[in-house]
Amino acid sequence: MRVSLFIPCFIDQLTPQVGLATAKVLKKLGQEIEFNSSQTCCGQPSYNSGQWEIAKEGAIRSLEVFKDAEVVVGPSGSCVAMMKKFYPELLHGTKYEAEAKRLSQRTFEFSDFIVSQLKITDVGATLNKKVTYHDGCHALRELRLKEEPRKLLRAVKGLELIETEEAESCCGFGGLFAVKFPMISTAMVQVKAGALARTGADYIVSSDPSCLLQIGGWLSREGKVIRPLHIAELLAMGIDDV
């Protein structure tokens, strides 16, 4: 398939390696990769802040950016949920509604695309590490992706997946919530990241880089050794080791 990469704004600027890993894994799986550099941000920050009129402009812009894409794949459950689930609601009753639905049907989160569209669980990676998985809330509850990333992880040779009781708890990021209510957000990440760190895993893996920003940011400040890693980065790393 011709995969059009959807690289959310903060991955573009802060963690480009996640975008590169996404491209690398998909390429390894035989996909043709394209990146439309006119993409910027999906508009979720404005949407979540209640500025829906402003968010609509961002949404309409994305419809234009991806209008010719065969499929759109993004390494962020949250930003993909914005496109896949919230664009059709945001643009409901406007002339863009049909196009929003068409984009929604063609847009997939990275692990979902590999497992449900490419029907692949073993990407051919090997990695002798212990990992624990963090479910990003948008991936888990808006996109209903729970098993997809785990299937990919379990198929990595040498990898040990350690589940934590707090796997489904929110990390406290929540977009601008993290800086509008920092005390609550920090308390939440303390609970979440604390539980993840106690697993003794080498990496905290997630399909949501924004959660990893929050979890990693707190762990780094607290001086913990466990490292956050996007699932695409992990798979790309495992492919390297082959």
Binding site: I7, I11, D12, Q13, L14, T15, P16, Q17, G19, L20, A23, F35, S37, L176, A178, V179, P182, T186, V189, L213, Q214, G216, G217, W218, S220, R221
Partner: peptide, 23 residues
């Protein structure tokens, strides 16, 4: 926002180049 974030959390090492630049 940025200042608030940094009160309790770090940001990852800031990359030289953005994804679009590397691409």
């Amino acid at each position: 926002y940025l200042g608030t974030w940094l009160k309790s959390r770090d940001l990852p090492a800031i990359p030289q180049k953005s994804f679009r630049e590397v691409w």
